[in-house]
Each structure stands twice: as structure tokens, then as C-alpha cells.
């Protein structure tokens, strides 16, 4: 399936990846060929085949409802680019 630059820009926007027009053009060709490869799947007869999300047929284990974590804010926020009063800072969000 051939992609247009705006398809790439749309995906880039959804993924919040900044791409300039040159980047987008470059990716159009790569992505088109990757999708052409993926399109080979259409040839496989999958009628009545259930999708497989996990390789093992296992089921979810449940965790006891216990508080096991302690406050590690200071440790975690050492990796944070901008914090104040214990809050992570981001450019003003307009509601």
C-alpha cells in the first residue's frame, strides 16, 4: 500500500514525533516498502483463525491488594528534567 507524505505526517503527529518535510519524504519510501512487505500477509488464508496476542496460552495472575511501595519521589525525580514542589513541570496546558 503506497503511502503519501501526509500519511507519514499523520502517524508522526499521533506519535508526537517531530518530522520536517524532508524527513517525511525520506520515510515515505521506506514505510511504503515495509508496508508492501506486510501486505504479503493478505495472501494467507486466516479464515476462522483466532488472533494470537501472547505466545503462551497463559492467564493473568492476580496480585494481593497490598500497599508494597514506599515514597521514592526524590530518587525518581533525580532523573526528571524539570520539577518543582514535587511536581513534574511541563509547558502550560490549556484546558
Amino acid at each position: 500500500m503506497a503511502l503519501e507524505p501526509q500519511d507519514v505526517q499523520r502517524a508522526a503527529h499521533l506519535a508526537r514525533l517531530g518530522l520536517d518535510d524532508n524527513d517525511a519524504d525520506r520515510y515515505v519510501d521506506d514505510l511504503t516498502r515495509i508496508l508492501e512487505m506486510a501486505d504479503q500477509l493478505q495472501a494467507v488464508d486466516t479464515d476462522g483463525v483466532a488472533p494470537l496476542a501472547h505466545p503462551l496460552d497463559a492467564t493473568q495472575r492476580l496480585r494481593a491488594d497490598e500497599v508494597t511501595e514506599t515514597d521514592q519521589r526524590e530518587r525518581f525525580q533525580r532523573n526528571a528534567p524539570a520539577v518543582e514542589n514535587g511536581l513534574y513541570l511541563v509547558p502550560r496546558v490549556v484546558e
Partner: peptide, 9 residues
């Protein structure tokens, strides 16, 4: 916060 928004998780 100097024109920023604070996030509490």
C-alpha cells in the same frame, strides 16, 4: 509555576 503546569501522578 513560571508559566508551566505541574503534574501530580
Amino acid at each position: 509555576f513560571h508559566g508551566m503546569t505541574g503534574v501530580d501522578l
